[in-house]
Structure formats: C-alpha cells, structure tokens
Design a protein around this nucleic acid. Sequence first.
DNA 1: TATGAATGAGTATTCATTCAT
DNA 2: AATGAATGAATACTCATTCAT
Lengths: 213, 213, 213, 213
Amino acid sequence: MSAAPIRKRRKEARPAELMAAALGLFVDKGYAATRLEDVAIRAGVSKGTLYLYFDSKEALFKAVIQEGIVPVLLENEAIAARHTGSSFELLEKLLDHWWEKIGRTAFAGIPKLMVAEARNFPEIAQFYYENVIRRGRALVGTALERGMASGEFRRLDVETTIDVIIAPILMLLIWRFSLAGCESVEADPAHYLAVHMDLVRQGLGKREAESQV
Amino acid sequence: MSAAPIRKRRKEARPAELMAAALGLFVDKGYAATRLEDVAIRAGVSKGTLYLYFDSKEALFKAVIQEGIVPVLLENEAIAARHTGSSFELLEKLLDHWWEKIGRTAFAGIPKLMVAEARNFPEIAQFYYENVIRRGRALVGTALERGMASGEFRRLDVETTIDVIIAPILMLLIWRFSLAGCESVEADPAHYLAVHMDLVRQGLGKREAESQV
Amino acid sequence: MSAAPIRKRRKEARPAELMAAALGLFVDKGYAATRLEDVAIRAGVSKGTLYLYFDSKEALFKAVIQEGIVPVLLENEAIAARHTGSSFELLEKLLDHWWEKIGRTAFAGIPKLMVAEARNFPEIAQFYYENVIRRGRALVGTALERGMASGEFRRLDVETTIDVIIAPILMLLIWRFSLAGCESVEADPAHYLAVHMDLVRQGLGKREAESQV
Amino acid sequence: MSAAPIRKRRKEARPAELMAAALGLFVDKGYAATRLEDVAIRAGVSKGTLYLYFDSKEALFKAVIQEGIVPVLLENEAIAARHTGSSFELLEKLLDHWWEKIGRTAFAGIPKLMVAEARNFPEIAQFYYENVIRRGRALVGTALERGMASGEFRRLDVETTIDVIIAPILMLLIWRFSLAGCESVEADPAHYLAVHMDLVRQGLGKREAESQV
DNA sequence: TATGAATGAGTATTCATTCAT
DNA sequence: AATGAATGAATACTCATTCAT
C-alpha cells in the first residue's frame, strides 16, 4: 500500500507535471524558444520520457492549451445558468470565478501564450477560439442582454461592448507575463479589477438624462 | 539625374525596407520562428545584404521596435501640450493621432510583438517601457488629472484608471495580430474605439448622485 | 559481459576518439580550415555527437592540446630526478622518452599545430607555454647546469643554449607535418637525432685548448 | 612633375603594398582566418581594388611567398660563388646576409606561414621547396663539403647536418611569430645566432683525438 | 582605375526526435 | 516505463568574389 501506489500515482501524474512544466516555459520564452530538454528537466524526467506521453512538441503545446482553460468555461456556464441576482452581479460572479481558477493559478499565462502563438498554430487557435473565446463572449453577452432587458443597463452594441469589457481583464494577465518586469511597483490585481468593474458599472448603467428620454 | 542616384537611394532605403519586412514576419511568426532569409527575401535582397545594415538578428529586432513607435509619442506629447478644450476631447485627440500613426499602419503589430518577446529581450523591453509605455501612460494620466481638477471627471485612482482605459485599445491591436483570423466577421476598429470611448465618457463622468454630494 | 558495456565503453572512449580525429585534421589543415563535420566523420559519429562532448570548436582544440603533451613532461621530470649517469646521458634519456611518447605517436603534430595557431589562441598558447615549453626548457637547463658543474661541459650561456639544442628536435616534427611531403626521400628521424646529438656532444664538451687554460 | 608621378608611383606600388599587408595578416592569423577586407583596409584600399591586382586569395598568398624570399637566395648564391676564406666564415656570411634581408625584415614571418599552410597549398609548397629550401640547403651543403675537403671540418653526414644546422635559425623566426608573446623577456636574436654558430663551429671542427687518427 | 553594395556558398551550432539499452 | 546517447535537419552568421557605377 506504499511503494506501488506511489509509483502509479507518479505515472498518472506525469502528463500533468509535464504540461505544467511546459506551460511555464512556453509562457516565459515562447513556443519556439522553449527547449523540450528544459521542459523535461523541470518536470524531473528525461527527454526521452516526454515522448512516452506526447507525440511531439506541438502535441504538448496543444494539450497545454486544451487542458488548461476549457473546464473553467463549463463551470462559468453553470454559474450563469443558476444566477438570480442583478446582471452586474452576474458579471462580477463570472469574473470572480475566472480569477479564482485562471487568474491566480498557473493557467494565467495561457492568454499571452495563445496570443503570441495563434498565427503559428491555426488549428489550436481555432480550438481555443471555439471553446474559450466564443463561449466566454457568449456568457458576457448574455449578461449584457439580460441587463438591457431588465432596464439595468442602457442600450448597448452588445457584440462590441463584450470585447471592450473583457479587454482590460485579458490585458491584466498579458501584462503580467510580458512587460510587468520592467516596473518595480507590483500592481494589485484585485484593485485593478475593482477599478475596472467600477468603470463598467457606471459606464453601462442608465444615465438620469437618458432614463428621462 | 535619375539613373545614378538609384543605387544611393536604394542604400538609404534599405534599412527601412528590411525593418518593414522583419516587422511583418516577427509579428506573424514570432522572433524565434522568423528566419532571416525570409526577411531578406521579403525585402527583395539576399541574406548577406541584411548583415550590411544590421549586425545580428537581435539588432534588427531592436531597430524594429525602436524606430517604430517612439516618434509618435513625441507628437502626442506636443498635442497634449497645446490642447485647450475639455479633457475628454484631449483623450480623443490622443487616441485619434495614435490610431492614425500606429493603428492603421504597419506599426500596429508592435504591441503584440513586444508583449510576446518582452521576456526574451529584457533590455529592449526596458527601452520600450521607458519610451513608450511610461510616456504613453503619463499622457493619459495628465488628461485624467486635468479632468478631475476641472470637475469634468469624478474622483479616480488615476494610475489604475490609466491602465484600464488603455487596455481595450491595446487589445484591439493584439487581437488583430493573433486570434482575429479565427473569426470570419471582420470587426470595425473605428466602431470598437467609439464604443470604448463612449463607455469611458460615461464611466469617468460625474454621476448626478455624486455631484449632489 | 560484452554486449552491455559496449555503449558505455563507447561513451568513455568518445572524447579520446574525437580528439584524435581533431588533432589529425587540425595538424593537416589548420584550425580554421578544419570542418567539425569532417572531425565527426573521421571519428565515426555525427556532427551533433561532437557537441555532446565538447562545447565548441575552441573547446575541442583546447582539449587536444592539453591532453596531448602534458603527461610526458611529468614523466621526464621523474626521469631527470632519478638520473645518476653523465649529463649528456641525461639529455639522451630525455630525448629518447620524449621521442617514444610524442615523436612516434599521433601527438607529434602538436608542436606544429601550436606554432601555427598560437597567435589566434593566446590563452591556450599561454597554457602550453607554462606547462610544456617552460618545463621542457627547465629540464634541459638542469642537465646543462649539471654538466657544467661536473666539468663535463664547457662554460655556456645556459638559457640560449637550451633553445639552440631543442630547436632541431622541434623542427624535425614541424617539418614532418609541413614541407616534408615535397621531398620523395623519406628521412630517418633516428639518424637525424643521432647526428644532432653528436654535434651537441662535441659542441658542448670541453676543448683541449680550453681545458688547458 | 608632382601630381601625375605620385599617382603613378602609387599605382605601381599597390601590389607590393597589398602583399605586405597580406603577409602581416597571414603570419598573424593564418591564411584561412585572414579576411581580404582586412588586407585591403591595412593597405588603404577597398576590397574591390584588391581584385584588380590579384585574381584570388590564393593568388595573393602565392605572390606573398614567391616575391618574398627568392631574391635573397640568388644573392646568397652569388656570395658563395665568390667566397675565398674559410668554410666556417662562408657559413657566417650566408647567415649574415639572410638575416639582413629576411630575419630583420617583414619577410621574417614567411617560414612560419609556409610551415603552417604547406599542406593546404601543395603547389605553393612545392615552389617554396624547389626555390628556397632546396637551394638554401645546397648552399650550406657546399660549404660543408668544402670544409671537409680542406680538413677544416671533421667527416660529416652532410645531408643530415645541413638540416641540423639550419633548424635553430628557422626556429628563431618561427618562435618569434608564434609563442614568443608568452614570455615577457625579449630574447636577443643576434646573441642567439652567435651561440648557435659557436656550437656549430666547435661541433663541426676536428677534435685533437680525431686529428691524430 | 577604384569603389563598395550585393551575393550566396559554406560552417558552427542548436535541438526535436529516435532508439538501443 | 525510463533513459540518454546519437542523429541530422535547420538556421544564424561569415566572407570570398562579382559587378554596376
């Protein structure tokens, strides 16, 4: 009950360990500049072992992207389905959960990675678009429609507003994994998100003047 | 008066031609995955010629970043200095000019490129930070302070608000050079920026309730 | 007991095999004109394998020089320490051993190689000077001092005589790896050395006239 | 009488200037590691100009070797032909002249250069052998035969003794252009040659014992 | 003649991938 | 399953040589 299971657990954990190591290096150095030997070393195995679990560098990249974010989307879709409060509160809930599962985990680097490599891997980009981007936008879009219907939000160009709202959240992560190192002052992401949501709340809400129209 | 200068004109134009070719490929494939031979071919010269003008691949990258954006910052600083209207109009002017000189030119790819490669070129990232990011943020910051002082804007956490306002503009470009290809519908950037600025106008402005306080 | 260790024995033998191949080509064509691919082919491996054992062409060159000659110097120092016969016999012993371990082995090419490349690799030249030249000269110098003290040799400018005595021995090897091919008649090195030592014996010895003074 | 001739003189001096520049660099860095651009720069012309005077790098190398030393051999042959004193004095005369025209001029580097590159340029090596080595050896050989015939020298293996006598003289130059830089103490070549000739004089002369036989 | 911009073949080095153990 | 030695295709960079001016 001691030796064998540990080995087994090890064996089953290998792919995840390798993907975690790969994600870290891909985010740090980019796909092309990441050496598989470094991935193996970081995961504590040999170069050959990596090929027991992944067919190629590209397959590893694909797995890193696919395993990372998709589950969170599913969860957020469930959150939206059972939400009952105001639409703005729904936006906040979605953001909170996303932050908890992506923003403060190792997966936080994926948006930057995907942005940097999308053109080199159209197939993976397509997958990411279908399963992350499109569904994420749909969630925000639903919340906006809901708020407009209830009178909570003013009339909006929903499709465009979705992007404008999401952009600062993505930039927060992209920034963290790119130019953040240039500045000694470490920004507080929670505060950043609060300021953003505050701007959104007022920006989306009905103005007195408008409500009188 | 036409035959002789061809060679000379060529020689003076070469660096710019090479930088343009390099920017295109760097943005498209990333720094590491860009072959210098492809840069040369795109510029219509041979591999060796490239080395007559740039000492190395890194030197070429550096030049691409440095020559591209810095001049625009200088111009925007001049615009801010002589502005007389409302603070929100100043923000619009700065955005317009930046869009004219960066957003709709070949330089539009630089933000994505810099984001993708910052960690591999700390020295260049530092340069970019000092000369583009810091000064760009300062311009927006000044406009926000001005608007708060005049009562045009509500009380704000300026440093954070700067980032939140800039983020959608950067994401617009980053998006264009990464995942945009996944969607057949080509978005209208002018409309996107209009929606963003509309959100900002209302988001930053004084609320009735607040103004009564 | 034979199959398994093959791989391992190979791995341990590789550096020496590569160095031998490199020495042959460096001596033949010079450092700059030697292609690492040719070194690899001569050693029966691929280009990449070479880099498993040596970091760079220069590291390979360094190893070739350092591993080749230094051990022989140590042995000759031991020979000198336990010698009891005449001083001229000591010179002969040193020459014999050096010939056995360098002159008739693959290392014979090193003096020409070092002479040809010293200016391009000052650091390696310095190492060679300290560990081969200086110590070799010291051995000869000791023998000369010893012979002068015992009355076997006439009074000599020791430092200069060292060089004059060593020169024909070095030239013998240098010649073999450079212009020797121009002459069909293959000279006999043993005879050459005998003639040299005969000249040295009479040249260093006391003359009758001098002994009467 | 001023502008034109200067230009002309310049034009006629070009090949010699280029050869001098090339010799310096060939000796310093070796043939392969010498860049023709550096040769041109050192000679104060452009890279293209070099090709007006020499067809290729190899042709330049050939010229450097051929123009450098051959004339001196001719002169030494004349010296030997009209010599009347002792045979040892003839050896001294030949050495003096060679030292004056080669040893203390820029041509002093040629022996090292030829030694280092002989195997890469068999044709040039052959030329050098025929015109420099063979004729130089013949001169020394004649002096030795003459001394033996007159009873001035003891019985010798002439062919081998030639090489043994010449070796220290060549090594003096080879040393100067290779490892000499490793030692701070700058040796005095005149003194070195004096010690060598002193050893030769006693080494070649008849011994009392021998003369009694 | 002289220039120097342009070329492209050639080489050192890297790294994804394979495979014998 | 796991290793790591071996491979060789790929790429940055150099430099002899050419040629339009």
